[in-house]
């Protein structure tokens, strides 16, 4: 079975084409579907095994990044999304997709509650949008399906609102205890460090989190932007495999879907 991936598009989402390509390289049948087609029920979420919310600037980041898109999905497709999760299917949100997911409450979803917002992503401490590559270290205890076998990875961030903040200290400790934290920003040696290694001032250097099942996952950096070695900022001076390291994240999802869904 070739897993089918729905790549959401429309309203200012703009990383849909490369996210589609990344899933294709990982062996999936990936299709870009406009949000209006889902809302009109011209297309059905249930026909897919993986849902991807790509990066971009949905609604121009007006009011707050991902907020308006989150409302639109939540109030029009809330039940479909819940059913999708209940069936054990996979969701990944990248950058603006991650922002929308936390604002919908899909992450971290303590106690299986996928409708309550406990964390957010807000303005970078620098006060600027920044495009720079960052080192990520994965939490080996995390149940995240997408990052299985990945210890560390180098990827670009491209955002103005990527600072991860928890509602309160209890939420933060819940994230840690429950191993919701998937990726942390680190320096070249793998140690936690300040700006610019942590590019936005995220609390506890958090760059990506998942739900309790590990099947619903969001991250600020862009794995789909490292699909070929020539994407790497130092590819002309380092020996690198042809395939970009970001693809592994998509392949993990596709392999899981092949085996289980």
């Amino acid at each position: 079975m070739i897993p089918k991936v729905l790549i959401l598009t429309g309203y200012g989402i703009n990383c849909d084409i490369e996210t589609q390509n990344a899933f294709r390289l990982a062996g999936a049948d990936a299709e870009r579907v406009h949000l209006t087609d889902l809302i009109n029920r011209t297309r059905k979420l249930e026909d897919f095994q993986i849902l991807a919310l790509p990066g971009g600037f949905s609604f121009g980041d007006d009011i707050a990044s991902g907020k308006v898109l989150a409302n639109m999905i939540k109030y029009n497709l809330g039940e479909e999304i819940q059913a999708f999760i209940d069936e054990g299917k996979l969701i990944i949100g990248i950058c603006n997709g991650f922002q929308a997911m936390v604002k919908m409450g899909l992450l971290p979803a303590f106690n299986d509650n996928y409708a309550s917002q406990d964390v957010t992503l807000t303005f970078n401490d620098s006060g600027k949008f920044e495009d720079r590559w960052v080192y990520l270290k994965s939490n080996q205890k995390s149940k995240c399906i997408f990052t299985k076998g990945i210890d560390s990875v180098y990827l670009p961030v491209r955002h103005g609102e990527g600072k991860f903040v928890a509602r309160n200290p209890q939420v933060l400790s819940g994230l840690k205890k429950g191993n919701h934290v998937v990726f942390r920003y680190v320096d070249r040696e793998g140690k936690s460090a300040g700006y610019p290694y942590n590019p936005n001032g995220s609390v506890d250097n958090i760059a990506g989190i998942c739900d309790e099942t590990g099947r619903v996952f969001g991250m600020m950096p862009h794995p789909e932007a490292f699909q070929h070695k020539t994407n790497h900022p130092r590819w002309t001076r380092e020996e690198l495999p042809e395939e970009g390291a970001g693809i592994a994240i998509f392949r993990n999802a596709v392999e899981y879907a092949k085996e289980r869904l």
């Binding site: 703009n14 990066g55 495009d131 670009p156 491209r158 900022p233």
Partner: peptide, 20 residues
Amino acid sequence: VIRQYDHEVQAGSVVKPLTG
């Protein structure tokens, strides 16, 4: 200025505005 412009969206970036 360069870092405040997204120079990598669309994932086709090969030679970026900054090298090292």
